[in-house]
Amino acid sequence: MARTETTDPYKLLGVARGASQEEIRKAYRRKVKENHPDLHPGDADAAERFKAISAANDILSDPEKRVRFDRGELDAEGHETGRSGFWRDHAEGADAGAYRSSAGFDDFADASEFFADMFGRRAGARGGSGMKMRGADMHYRVEVDFRTAARGGKVRLSNAEGAGFDLSVPEGCEEGQVIRLAGLGRPGAGGGPSGDALVEIAIRPDPLFRREGRDILIEVPVSIDEVVTGARIDVPTLDGTVKLTIPRGAGAKVLRLRGKGIRPGGDQLVRLRIAAPEAVDDELVEALEAWRKRARPDPRRNWGGA
């Protein structure tokens, strides 16, 4: 349907096809001022132009008429074209062959010889052409535990149809990382390929470990004697328990376990948290008072908060 310059109601009012009703109202008012015959007594063509503008406004100012015009059901004069914008009026036509489905009665051919013949004869005609269409991608968000994300592992998911599939979580996977699984999205149409599954990873915090860059952080409670005299203690890592040597006089340091962080190159950093003794006896107090006299410790000497 050709919409020429002089009859397209949108062009007559000077508005875009997506114009809002408010924009159309404003445009009409402007056009009336420019073209009303009574405001332009000397303009011979004004009456004809004004008639066209009124007709355009009749269609576009009425939201229902506008929709029907856009769908081709009304022409520029507002008359019915006989074309329908409703799907049901096209659904059984020749152009809609690609959409009609026989899924509702495919089994009839098995139950009845007559139907088998009937459908068999027209097998070539049915099965509508349509285009080969790639299926849409499916989006998932999956919560994975900290250790699986850090060292890698498998997580089981199910897709839209309920079928299960395994997701391989890569080692060192980060929060928000998206993993694309080819072919596990929605099926394609007309024999086209399936879309992909896009899985976003959310990582569940761990009670012991934290991640900073490629390093794993952990805080370990130690007793005063351990940091003073030195000790060998058991410390958990992502790969199991290891022995950590606390050097004599270590204090509340951060000790480094090489290679125990995110591979390659990450370490595990162990922060020693000194736990005060649970029970303080007189002997301990005396020993430390004697030590204080000898050593005169002044830990706040160069401290900014003095």
Partner: peptide, 23 residues
């Protein structure tokens, strides 16, 4: 999603929609 299937003519890139497709 395969919900609408416009025709792509041989040799052309762009899909074209019939009145049925538009409906």
């Amino acid at each position: 999603a395969g919900w609408i299937r416009p025709v792509v003519a041989e040799g052309e890139g762009a899909p074209r929609f019939t009145a049925a497709d538009a409906a």
